[in-house]
């Protein structure tokens, strides 16, 4: 999952970036409301972790702007203000979830996964495509009940494809999912990951549509 992290406290920002990465999230981190606004306009995120008190404005304002222009990105408010009134206000302003500081890293990750699941309208925590089962929480993949060892990037590519199995994802879409803005990406990196995935899951597991992108192949019984 690709997550936008908006937090003005440098240590918290750094820790969350690292911690969420350890949980398999692709994290973009900004500390100003303006930067967050620009990021949401520039690309799509699967979820957003938003602090309320930012140096250049209120996270709630950003949230309202986001919803006003029809952006439905799931938002987890993460803030020191967690009285009932604040929580109600945050949720009514369009937040999908609310977590007070201090928080547990595992809980943040779990809530983000739940937000992603809800956004995809998916009933099970696992992603299932035929005999292929991907568990985002435990970060493992099984084919016909047998565990398959995947690298972090391979897992992320597979997860992106399995989230919406019928949809085609372009190479750029996948690149955005996998790498941060700062990361240097080899031009054929995605092809390499796809190649390795096919090697581990079978040739037809992922289909290539020339010049368009990739999508999951027909489900294997």
């Amino acid at each position: 999952m690709r997550v936008l992290l908006v937090e003005d406290d440098a240590m918290l920002l750094d820790g969350l970036r690292l911690g969420l990465k350890m949980h398999g999230f692709q994290v973009e981190a900004v500390s100003l409301m303006g930067d967050a606004e620009a990021a949401t306009r520039a690309s799509r995120f699967d979820a957003m972790v938003l602090d309320i008190m930012l140096p250049d404005g209120s996270g709630l304002d950003l949230l309202r702007q986001l919803r006003a222009r029809g952006d439905a990105t799931p938002v987890l408010l993460l803030t020191a203000r967690d009285a009932v009134g604040d929580r109600v206000q945050g949720l009514d302003d369009g937040a999908d979830d609310y977590l007070g500081k201090p928080f547990d890293l595992d809980e943040v990750a779990a809530r983000l996964r739940a937000l992603g699941r809800r956004a995809q309208g998916r009933p099970t925590p696992q992603l299932i495509w035929g005999a292929l089962v991907l568990d985002p929480a435990r970060r493992d993949v099984a084919l016909q009940g047998n565990p398959v060892a995947l690298s972090r990037r391979e897992f992320a590519v597979l997860e992106a494809l399995m989230e919406r199995p019928g949809f085609i994802l372009s190479r750029e879409d996948l690149q955005e999912r996998l790498y941060g803005w700062q990361d240097d990406v080899e031009s054929n990196a995605i092809e390499v990951h796809i190649h390795k995935l096919r090697h581990k899951l079978g040739r037809d597991a992922i289909r290539t549509l020339r010049g368009v992108g990739y999508r999951m192949g027909e489900p294997v019984a």
Binding site: D9, L12, M22, P102, F103
Partner: peptide, 25 residues
């Protein structure tokens, strides 16, 4: 409220210290 943010950072970093794979982390 002001104390909560550094507290959150403290907790987070402690969790990271426990979960981190490498000595440098």
């Amino acid at each position: 409220h002001e104390l909560r943010t550094p507290l959150a950072g403290l907790r987070l970093q402690a969790q990271l210290a426990m979960a981190s794979g490498t000595e440098a982390e």
